[in-house]
């Protein structure tokens, strides 16, 4: 009887804990959305921020976040792809490979602020790129590389070895076999991984404060010449992102509506993350279904 009661209590506690975790999340999301959604308007999303007066928006920051995300993915995807292929296909089983894997693991667990500071030291100061989108994208690449590499390696490994052997036995090179046969099969996993990593990159701030900078310069959204200094596409301009903006106005913001702006911006960030999450699932499933279906292409 005693042990039965004990059992009942313990199970109840476990259930209560699980429910509390759900409540915590529901509270977080609910609070952010409830607080933030009322501030979101077309004007808020498109107009520039203001430093000292109320009524500023997050237009440039939103653009910067998306632009940086795009650049980061463009830089980090090919490198991760190469590294992922190396690890799954070419890495010999020896000490060097162990060291390489360890290095990637260490890189993935480095605090993002350290990665950001390194980017600051090397690119902003040493290479004199200054606070710029380019420096920011490179720092985010460092931050993104280990996760994307691991994801690509796992996706490649999950493809049946039979497919690999089929290609090789026909006299194809390993490189072509991987690129033309294995990678298309691994695509659902890779796409899911990229989209999830996009969510992480989109919300990252610590690595950007000292690389992409904390100011959103006035950009002219009608000037799309990437070499012009007022163009939004210019790689060398400092670019405060949405996440950095939230941090900044909360640490040193002096505009009267700082809380409202952060609430709105936080809601936008959360919605973006939710969208990335849903997109990852949807795209992954969609691609998977498309590939395994026996229907005509």
């Amino acid at each position: 009887m005693n042990t039965k009661l004990q059992n009942k209590i313990a199970i109840t506690i476990i259930k209560a804990i699980a429910i509390m975790v759900v409540i915590i999340l529901a509270f977080l999301i609910g609070r952010i959305l409830l607080q933030g959604l009322p501030h979101i308007s077309w004007h808020f999303l498109t107009s520039p921020s203001r430093a000292f007066t109320a009524g500023g928006g997050i237009g440039p920051q939103l653009f910067n976040s998306l632009y940086l995300l795009l650049l980061t993915l463009i830089i980090s995807f090919p490198i991760s792809l190469g590294a992922g292929i190396y690890l799954s296909e070419y890495a010999p089983k020896n000490g060097i490979t162990t060291v390489i894997r360890m290095a990637i693991e260490v890189l993935s667990s480095l605090p993002s602020v350290v990665v950001g500071l390194f980017g600051f030291l090397l690119f902003v100061v040493q290479f004199k790129l200054g606070y710029s989108i380019l420096s920011g994208a490179i720092a985010l690449t460092f931050f993104n590389l280990p996760l994307l590499t691991r994801n690509i390696e796992e996706s490649i490994n999950s493809v049946s070895n039979l497919q690999r052997e089929a290609g090789l036995a026909l006299g194809m090179s390993k490189w072509r076999t991987v690129n033309k046969i294995i990678l298309p099969e691994a695509l659902p996993g890779i796409v899911t991984g990229i989209v999830l990593s996009a969510g992480r990159v989109f919300g990252e701030a610590a690595a950007l404060i000292y690389t992409a900078g904390q100011s959103a310069t006035n950009v002219n959204f009608s000037n799309w010449n990437p070499f012009s200094s007022t163009s939004p596409l210019n790689l060398m301009r400092p670019a405060e992102t949405l996440a950095v903006h939230i941090w900044k106005i909360n640490s040193e913001g002096i505009m009267p509506d700082a809380t409202a702006v952060s609430a709105g911006a936080s809601a936008v960030l959360i919605i973006a993350v939710l969208v990335f999450n849903l997109m990852a699932r949807f795209l992954g499933n969609y691609l998977y279904k498309k590939m395994t279906s026996a229907e005509t292409k």
Partner: peptide, 20 residues
Amino acid sequence: VIELLVGIPSVVYGFIGLTV
């Protein structure tokens, strides 16, 4: 729930921290 908690950016946690 866990996947969403991972996804929330740290500045948003900071903001919730400040306001809640």
